[in-house]
């Protein structure tokens, strides 16, 4: 126990400040600014892997580490779509996952946001569109914000999430 406490004290607080939103990642404005400002204070995210190579998941996991400390910003990952405001989707969307992805989206209460993650979520990436892949997330769901990268860094992911929940700045 003493070792545990000593480690906690020794490491201290390592969290860094979050990045600013980036309007260039925004594909559409679905929500009123007013609602966005409310969601911005406490947001629940449901993450769905709809066909990813699992590379994007490694970086999404990093958002929960003490350095990015996403929970410290009032944002947390939830287990049920019924509790979620934002759907974070990695792609490409495989046809075998497309129905499950749609059902997850439909189970979320309105208003809801969708963030597409990674090169594959944005345009199908190296896998493209085929008998097995529907391609980008936007082929199945309305996407509000899309963040490219293979995989996108945690900073970029955080920026995309913050862009989705903060009103356009212009």
């Amino acid at each position: 126990m003493l070792k545990t406490l000593r480690t906690i004290a020794g490491v201290g607080i390592v969290s860094e400040s979050p990045p600013e939103p980036d309007d260039e990642l925004r594909l559409r404005d679905a929500l009123q600014a007013q609602i966005q400002s409310v969601l911005g204070r406490a947001l629940a995210i449901r993450a769905v892997d709809s066909g990813s190579c699992n590379g994007c998941e490694l970086e999404i996991h990093a958002l929960n580490n003490p350095i990015y400390n996403i929970e410290g910003l009032g944002i947390r990952f939830v287990a049920s779509p019924r509790h979620a405001d934002l759907l974070l989707v990695t792609g490409p969307v495989s046809w075998n996952m497309a129905a499950a992805l749609k059902r997850t989206y439909e189970a979320m209460p309105d208003p809801k946001l969708v963030v597409a993650v990674g090169d594959c979520g944005c345009d199908g990436g190296v896998f493209g569109r085929s008998y097995a892949c529907a391609g980008p997330v936007s082929a199945i769901l309305p996407v509000d914000v899309a963040v490219p990268g293979c995989p996108p860094s945690p900073q970029r992911l955080l920026q995309a999430i913050l862009t989705a929940i903060r009103p356009r700045r212009a």
Binding site: D49, S50, G51, S52, C53, G55, P92, S94, N96, M97, A100, G125, V126, F127, G128, S130, Y131, A132, C133, C150
Partner: peptide, 25 residues
């Protein structure tokens, strides 16, 4: 099988010297 992405079919559409990018994914 839910994340079946047709990777092996996709390989046949890529140049031999380009397949490593897909292999990494």
């Amino acid at each position: 099988g839910y994340v079946h992405k047709g990777i092996e079919r996709r390989f046949t559409e890529l140049p031999l010297l380009d397949g490593h990018r897909l292999a990494a994914r």
